[in-house]
Structure formats: structure tokens, C-alpha cells
């Protein structure tokens, strides 16, 4: 990771690592008004560009630090307008800022301490791993009647009920039912519309009704006509069709 605080700066007012600049600013040994923050941003962006890859962690860290500096500088430069700059009371804001910077510095110092500690112990080897399992505590169970166990098992040994497959069966009405229906209908009317007659029936019933039609057609009892694919299917009595065609021819 790109260490933001090790970023080398070469400014008019300051030359050295970013980290040192932060320390000097916080100790008020370097007036922030004299520091060109834009130069720092440019230095960081150039450094980032030189690396050829985007380090989001470093960018985030830099953003936090530079925005803290910008806020500090703004406070110092435009004291009158400051109240409009922040929602917090200036004293609160300053306190919050100080707290955050101090907190961050502490975390950083603690990290440095840990690093040194780690370096001290770098050369020491020891066994690490999960502890061997502790022996399980012996559990004393009360005397039990074997018949009780048998009883419990018997309850489990009952044959389970046969699972119902009723919902899986497709109910096909007999074709004959529709044969009768169509014949009855044709006795009353010379022709009818299939879709109208089967409206409200289930898919399976419609299919069986259609099979019945084919059966009637095979036995030459009816004529089936359809003007175009998916157009209504018209059914007429075979003799009616004949008479119609005869009428047409005779016309």
C-alpha cells in the first residue's frame, strides 16, 4: 500500500514527508496559511499517477487528512465566514476535529509500537494451534427400563400412511361423453362454433372434446371448417354441409 504519510513534498514553505508537515501544523510550528494545499494534492496525484494503479485505501486516507487540513486552513483564513461553513458550532467543530486528529494519531502511534514489538519477536518461534481436546466429562445416566426403550421404538416402527398421489392424476373424461354431447347438439342445430361450446371447460376437457370431434369426423357425421389458423372452428352436420354445397352449386 502507498503510505500517504511518507509522501515526499517539495513546497515553498516546506520540504519533507507529509507526516512531518502534519506534525508541524498540529504543533503550530508551521502556519497553515503559508502552505499551498493545492501543491500537496498535485504531489499526491502525481505520485499516484506514477504508480500506475489506483490505491483506494491511500486515496481515502489522503482525503481525510487533506480535508482536515483544508478545514483548519479555512478556519484560520476566513474566521468571520466560518459560522456559515459548518453546521456545528465553531468550538464544537474545532473540538471534533482535534479529537479526530488526535484519535488517528494515537492509532498510528499504537500501530508503530506494535510494529516494533513484532520486530522484537520476529525471531522467536513457538507452537500455535488449537488446544488438544479436553476430555469429555463423564455423564452418569439413571437406570432405565429396557421395555421403555422398546415402547418408544414401537411407536416409531408403525408403518407410515401411504402417501396420496391423488393430486398427480389427470382426470380424463371419457370421449363418449362428448360424442353424446355433440350428437345431441347437432340434432338441435345444424352448425356450431367449437370455442363457444367449450368455453369454461378445463384444458383436459377441451382436448377430449376435440378428440370426440375428430371421431365424429372420421365417421363422416360432421364437417369441420376453419377459415385460417387459430380462427374459430366451425362444425356442421355432414348432411347440412352437403346440402349447403349443393345449394351453392345450384345457385
Amino acid at each position: 500500500m502507498l503510505a500517504v504519510r511518507e509522501l515526499e513534498l517539495d513546497l515553498d514553505a516546506f520540504e519533507g514527508p507529509f507526516d512531518l508537515l502534519l506534525s508541524l501544523v498540529l504543533r503550530e510550528e508551521l502556519p497553515l496559511q503559508e502552505v499551498d494545499l493545492a501543491e500537496i494534492i498535485i504531489a499526491f496525484v502525481e505520485h499516484l499517477d506514477g504508480r500506475g494503479e489506483l490505491d483506494l485505501d491511500a486515496c481515502g486516507e489522503f482525503l481525510v487528512l487533506i480535508s482536515a487540513l483544508l478545514e483548519l486552513k479555512a478556519r484560520a483564513m476566513f474566521p468571520e465566514e466560518e459560522a456559515e461553513l459548518a453546521e456545528l458550532e465553531p468550538e464544537e467543530a474545532a473540538e471534533e476535529l482535534a479529537r479526530r486528529l488526535a484519535e488517528y494519531r494515537r492509532a498510528k502511534e499504537a500501530a508503530n509500537w506494535l510494529r516494533e514489538r513484532l520486530d522484537d519477536r520476529r525471531d522467536l518461534f513457538f507452537r500455535i494451534g488449537p488446544a488438544p481436546l479436553a476430555p469429555k466429562a463423564e455423564r452418569k445416566l439413571a437406570q432405565q427400563d429396557p421395555e421403555k426403550l422398546a415402547g418408544a421404538l414401537r411407536l416409531l416402527a408403525v408403518e407410515p400412511p401411504e402417501p396420496s398421489t391423488g393430486h398427480m392424476a389427470l382426470r380424463f373424461p371419457p370421449v363418449s361423453q362428448f360424442l353424446d354431447r355433440w350428437r345431441t347438439l347437432l340434432r338441435r342445430r345444424a352448425r356450431f362454433d367449437f370455442d363457444q361450446e367449450v368455453a369454461g371447460l378445463s384444458r383436459v376437457e377441451i382436448a377430449v372434446a376435440f378428440l370426440a370431434l375428430l371421431e365424429l369426423r372420421k365417421q363422416n357425421e360432421i364437417a369441420i371448417a376453419q377459415a385460417a389458423p387459430f380462427a374459430p372452428i366451425r362444425i356442421s352436420r355432414a348432411d347440412a354441409e352437403r346440402s349447403l354445397s349443393w345449394n351453392v352449386r345450384s345457385a
Binding site: L26, L72, P90, E95, A98, R99, E103, E109
Partner: peptide
């Protein structure tokens, strides 16, 4: 013992304020 004292920093910032 670590880093800058928060009271110290706050004091400085308050001076600015």
C-alpha cells in the same frame, strides 16, 4: 503516552477559533 495529547491539540484549535 501515545501521540499528541488530545487536550493539547484542542487547545491549539480553540486558540485558532
Amino acid at each position: 503516552d501515545l501521540g499528541d495529547d488530545v487536550a493539547q491539540i484542542r487547545e491549539r484549535l480553540e486558540t485558532v477559533a
